[in-house]
Amino acid sequence: MSRGRLLPLLLTTAGVLGAAGLLAHGSTVPAVAALLACLVFAVVNSPLLFPAALGTEEARRRSREDGRPVIYWRPGCRYCRRLRFRLGRDARRAHWVDIWRDPAAAAAVRAVADGNETVPTVVLPDGEAYVNPDPEWVRERL
C-alpha cells in the first residue's frame, strides 16, 4: 500500500470503529457525526482531491509542450491541500507529480529545495522553481 493511502485508511478505520463503539452504547447521532467527520478528514487527506499524478518525465514533457507549470506534492501535506483548494478548478490545468510515488520527483524537489523534500514545489516550463509559492502567483502562471 502506498504511503499516500495510509492516512485516509487509518482515518476511515478509526471512524468506523469509533462509530461502532458509540452505536453499541446507543448513541446514534454521535456515532454518525464521528463517522462523517473521520470520512471527511480521510477524503481531504487522500490523493483523490488532486488531479491524476504524472511521472516526472511525463509532466516535464507536457509542461514544455503546453507551457503549464509542474507542481510537486505529496498526500497529507497541508500546504499542498491549501494550494489545491485555493486554485480551485484551475488546479487541473497544472501537471501534478506525487513525490511519494515517483523517486525521480523526490530527487527533483531535493535539487531545488536545499536537499529537503519541501512541497508544494512549482517548476515553470523554463526550469525556474519555487517552493511553497502563493496560490495567486501560481494561478497567474496557469
Rank of each mutant, 00 (worst) to 15 (best):
A106I: 02
R60T: 12
V44Q: 08
G115R: 12
N116A: 14
E65F: 02
N132H: 15
P69Y: 10
A91H: 13
R61T: 14
P103Q: 13
R62S: 03
A53L: 02
R64H: 05
E65Q: 03
A113G: 04
R74C: 03
L6H: 08
G115V: 09
G26A: 03
R84I: 09
M1I: 04
R74Y: 04
R86I: 12
R62A: 06
L142A: 12
A19W: 02
D90A: 11
R5C: 01
L11S: 09
W137R: 14
A37S: 11
R61H: 13
L17K: 10
H95E: 15
V97M: 08
G18P: 02
L83Q: 02
L22C: 05
L7K: 01
R84F: 05
L48C: 08
L10Y: 08
A14W: 05
R5N: 01
D114G: 11
A111S: 08
A34D: 06
A107K: 14
W96E: 11
P69G: 14
W137L: 13
G88P: 11
L23C: 04
V112F: 07
G55P: 01
T12H: 00
S63D: 15
V70D: 08
G26H: 06
V32C: 03
L39K: 00
V29K: 00
Y79E: 07
L11N: 01
V32N: 02
R86W: 06
G55V: 01
L49M: 08
F85G: 05
V119W: 06
T13V: 10
G18H: 00
P75M: 04
L124H: 03
L39P: 01
D98P: 14
A42G: 05
V119K: 02
N116S: 14
R92H: 14
W96N: 10
A20I: 06
D90W: 01
W96Q: 08
E140F: 04
T28S: 01
V109T: 06
V16A: 13
T12N: 06
W137F: 14
L142E: 10
R139V: 05
G4N: 00
E65L: 04
A24Y: 13
P133D: 11
R81K: 06
N45E: 09
A113Y: 07
L54F: 05
V44K: 07
P120S: 01
A106Y: 04
G67W: 12
L35H: 10
D102H: 07
L83C: 00
R110Q: 15
D102Y: 00
A111R: 10
R74I: 04
G115N: 08
Y79F: 14
M1A: 12
V40E: 06
A113H: 07
L36P: 15
V112P: 15
V40P: 12
L48Q: 14
D102W: 02
Y130D: 12
R60M: 14
V97K: 03
A24R: 11
E140C: 05
D90S: 03
R86P: 07
P120I: 03
A105P: 01
P75L: 08
V119L: 03
T28K: 11
L11H: 02
R89M: 11
L9H: 03
A104P: 13
A19D: 01
S27R: 13
R82H: 15
L87H: 05
T12P: 07
